[in-house]
Each structure stands twice: as structure tokens, then as C-alpha cells.
Amino acid sequence: MSDARANRCPVTVIGGFLGSGKTTLLRRVLADEGSKGIAVVINEFGEVALDHHLVRQVGEQTVLVSGGCVCCNRRDDLVRVMRDLLDLDERGPIRKLRRVLIETSGLADPAPILFTLVTDPVLQHHFFVDGIVATVDAVNGQLQLDLHEESRKQATVADQLVLTKVDMAEPDELEKLVHRLRTINPMARITSAVFGELAGGRLFGDGASPSSLREGWGSGLSAEPERELYKANSSSPPTETRSLCLRLDQPLDWVAFTIWLSMLLHARGEDVLRVKGLINAREVGAVVLNGVQHVLHPPEHLERWPAEDESSRLVFITRKLDPQSIVRSLNAFQCLGGGQPVDANVSN
């Protein structure tokens, strides 16, 4: 287990647009996983349809931190509830807490939840975000993605997309939706569920390894899907959201990279909707990178590489940013560090 995760409780954030089946999925997952030691935090507008003794409701009260942007909001209600859970866990009234599930409201932005868990001085030492799941309605998903920014944001920041109501959707419509979701978020694992029952795979990992390493993350960045992705972007209606997949064969200068990334997220964080990657920083193992807008999880320095392929892989999902200028800028900073220009295999 990575040291950054040791002795900390995994948190899974379950989001998805209104009526997309979050609660159904949650009920089924709790039944399958065995609910002992799992706490569920739901929003105040959600139905309390869970027969579960550790359900806590939050009011989604966000506090704009000084100089903060939309993503850098602290969720005070969430802080109170999570500290309450921690207190119950440590005082002993509940069985050992082994996971917290946070079900967001259908219109919620997951970024402030991450910001809260990563930056709160107490919570950051007791919890870590193990993954973000978003449910997508297979019947109405396209329309929701067309009409609602919230829906696109939820799909963009998710580690796993669960298509619900797939039994009611036409096969060709389903295929188009999957294609669109892959365009929006090429790094997310896409699964499906009928009445909350997942078809293959599990919603959670063991909490020991980053969600990005489970199910062979990175294998989706082979050349073929990238070309498909490019085609999809070229033929679909103009959208401000674009994804950029980079594969770098030579190791990166880690110091130059962190200077560049911190400057980029400071200046353009609101437009870098998601950044995720495995970095070869000339260390013994990979460095796992995972960020949502201005909020970057502390990168995990692993003891080894998850596979034989030791090339760096980076995915950016951006809004209004030119992918070529990102590559040019990364190159300029790497050269400042004394390195060679990165030989980037780019698809956007």
C-alpha cells in the first residue's frame, strides 16, 4: 500500500445527473459489499431510501475561500459531517470505518468536495479520495450532456462512468453515447448497470492502489483509440471541451514539470478540468498525478511501475485551451530544466 494511503479511510464520490440512478446503484452496492463499516453521506435533497444506519445528510453549504474560484470552495457542511464520522470511529460507537461514500446531488460540482478533503487540516490526514464515480442515464444522457454544463462536468472529472438504464436504450444510441463519453473523458473506465447491478468490475478498489492504476489505466491510451478520439472531436459539433493525450518516451525532469504544472494550474486551473497521468520522473516507480481544476491530489510516488511500459502518460481535459500550446509550453519548461524537447505522441 502506498504510504500516502496507509491508515487513511478511502472516500468514493458518487455523482451523476438528476434521475440517473445514483441511489439505486448505491443501494445495490451496499447490499453487495456488505454495509458494515461503510458510511454514506447524502445531500439534503436526496431521498433517504437507504436502509443503512450510517447515513448522514449534508446541506451542500459551500464557503468561498479567500480569492477562491468555483472549484476552490470549502464545503463546511461536509467538513462537519466527516469530522463527526471520524469522532464516532475513534470513540468506538461504530464499527471500524472502512469506507465513506459521498452521494452528491444531481447538480453538484464534485470539485469542491475534493478541495475540502484534500485541504482540510484534519480530514486530509484521515481520508483520501479513492475514486469519483458518475452515473450516466443511457436513455437521456445525450440530451443532458447537450443541455447541462453540470452533466458534462460530472462526466469530465469521473474516474468511472456507470451507464444506467442500458436495458431501455437503443443499441446504436448507446454506442453513440459511449463514443461521446470517451471523447469527453478518455481516461474514465466505462461500465454499465441495470437496476444498480454492475455488469463486470467493481465500484471500489481495495483502497491500496490509486484508482488510476486499477483495471490497467493507461492501456486505453494506445494509438488506435487516440485516432478515434481525434475523429470524434473533428466531426462532433464544436465544443469548448477538448482532451489531450500525451505519451512521452523519455523521462521528464520532475522539478521543471512541477514548476510548469503549478504555474499552469494557477493561471488556467479553471480551464484545466482534469489532469491525470503516470509520470516517469527518473525514480524507481511511477508518479501518479490526479487533479481536478485547481485541486491536485498530492502526487503519489510509487515503489514500482504497474506494468512494463515505463513511458509517461498524461491526459488533460481542458476548456478553451489550445492543446498545441500546452505541448509547446511543457516543452519550453522541460528545456529550461536542461532536458531535451519532449517527443510527445499527441492526440487531441
Binding site: 503549478s262 499552469l264 494557477h266 493561471a267 509547446r328 509550453s329 519550453a332 519548461f333 528545456c335 529550461l336
Partner: peptide, 27 residues
């Protein structure tokens, strides 16, 4: 670095952007 960029932006009196073509040309 977390404190550097906001402070540098304040002191420079203009945004510090790594995608700024002017900065990239200079580098």
C-alpha cells in the same frame, strides 16, 4: 510554488501564464 505564483502575479501586476506566447518565445 503554491505561494509563489499568486505572490509573483501581485508583484508583477499582470497575470503569469505559462501558455502566454510572449513568455514561450522568450524562453
Amino acid at each position: 510554488l503554491g505561494q509563489l505564483w499568486p505572490a509573483a502575479q501581485r508583484m508583477a501586476g499582470r497575470p503569469l501564464d505559462p501558455l502566454d506566447p510572449g513568455l514561450l518565445c522568450a524562453l
